[in-house]
C-alpha cells in the first residue's frame, strides 16, 4: 500500500474526524468574528447588556420601539432607494461591458479585459473614494445625491460585471445561430436568447451589489456629507457619536432583518426562473 492509499483508507475509517478537522478552523473563525459579535449585538438590542457591559437580566423591546421612529424608517427607505439606484446603474453600465468582453472581443483578449476591469480595484476603497472626491469637487457636484449614486456605481461596478460576464461567456454560440436560422434578427435574438440566458448573472450581480450597497457607509459619508443619511451612517452615528449602543444594535438587527427579507423574496423570484 502506498502512502497515499494508506492516508485515504485511514481518512475513510475516521470520516467524522476528517470532517471535524476540515470544518473546525472556519467554524472557529466564524464563531469568534461573526456569530459572537452578532449575538452580542442582539443582546444589546434587547437590553440584556447594560452600561459598561454588565448583564441586566431584563429583556426589553423599547430600543426597537425607538428604532421604529419615523426618521429612522425614512433612513431605511432612503438606503433601499439609494441601493436600488446604484444596482440599476451598475446593471446598465455593466451589461454592455460584460457583453462586449464575452461575446464580441477576440477569445485571447477576454482574460486580459476581465483583469483590466479588476485592476483599478486593487487600489484601496478609501483611496479611490478620495480620488472621486477630488474629481467631484472639480466638477462642483460634491455633497449632492447624484454624486453619491455615481460614487456607489463606481465602487460596485466590477461586482456586477464579473457575474454577468461569467453567465454570458457560458452561452453556447450555436443557440444564437439557431435563433437566426429560425428567423430572429440579432436584436430579437438578444432579447429572447442572450438576455434570458444571462438572467442568473443578472440575479447574482444584483445581489452582490444591492446587499452591500444598502449598508454603504463610506461613500455617503465622504461624498454625501451630512446631506445623505443611510443605514450605514445612521449606525455609525448611533454607536460612535451618540454612544447609544442599544439603539444602534436595534437598528443593526432590523437592518439585517430587512436585507434577509428582501433577499428571500428576490431569491424566490429568481428560483422561479429555473434555468
Amino acid at each position: 500500500m502506498s502512502l497515499v492509499e494508506k492516508l485515504l483508507s485511514s481518512a475513510r475509517k475516521h470520516r467524522s474526524l476528517a470532517i471535524a478537522l476540515l470544518l473546525g478552523p472556519p467554524l472557529t473563525y466564524l464563531t469568534i468574528y461573526f456569530f459572537a459579535p452578532f449575538i452580542i449585538t442582539v443582546l444589546y438590542s434587547v437590553g440584556l447588556i447594560g452600561g459598561r457591559g454588565t448583564l441586566t437580566g431584563n429583556i426589553s423591546i423599547k430600543f426597537y420601539r425607538q428604532a421604529l421612529r419615523w426618521v429612522y424608517i425614512k433612513v431605511f427607505y432612503n438606503s433601499l432607494i439609494l441601493a436600488a439606484l446604484a444596482t440599476v446603474g451598475c446593471l446598465l453600465l455593466a451589461y454592455p461591458v460584460a457583453y462586449f468582453i464575452a461575446m464580441k472581443a477576440p477569445k485571447k483578449w477576454r482574460n486580459p479585459l476581465v483583469v483590466s476591469v479588476i485592476i483599478p480595484y486593487w487600489v484601496d476603497f478609501l483611496l479611490r473614494t478620495y480620488a472621486l472626491m477630488n474629481i467631484f469637487a472639480m466638477l462642483g457636484i460634491m455633497f449632492r445625491y447624484d454624486a453619491v449614486v455615481i460614487g456607489m456605481i463606481y465602487d460596485y461596478l466590477p461586482f456586477m460585471i464579473l457575474p454577468l460576464y461569467a453567465s454570458l461567456e457560458k452561452i453556447d454560440r450555436s443557440l444564437l445561430e439557431a435563433s437566426y436560422t429560425l428567423g430572429a434578427s440579432p436584436w430579437k435574438t438578444f432579447i429572447h436568447v442572450t438576455l434570458s440566458l444571462s438572467k442568473p448573472g443578472i440575479a447574482a450581480g444584483t445581489i452582490l451589489v444591492f446587499v452591500p450597497a444598502i449598508g454603504e457607509f463610506i461613500v455617503p459619508t465622504m461624498i454625501g456629507g451630512v446631506s445623505v443619511t443611510t443605514i450605514g451612517t445612521l449606525t455609525w452615528d448611533l454607536f460612535l457619536k451618540f454612544h447609544d449602543w442599544w439603539r444602534g444594535a436595534a437598528v443593526s438587527v432590523m437592518y439585517i432583518a430587512v436585507v434577509l427579507a428582501a433577499l428571500a423574496i428576490y431569491m424566490r423570484k429568481v428560483g422561479e426562473l429555473e434555468i
Binding site: S179, L197, I275
Partner: peptide, 9 residues
Amino acid sequence: FQNLALFPH
C-alpha cells in the same frame, strides 16, 4: 445543429 442547440430555458 450538431449539438442540436435547443434553447435550454
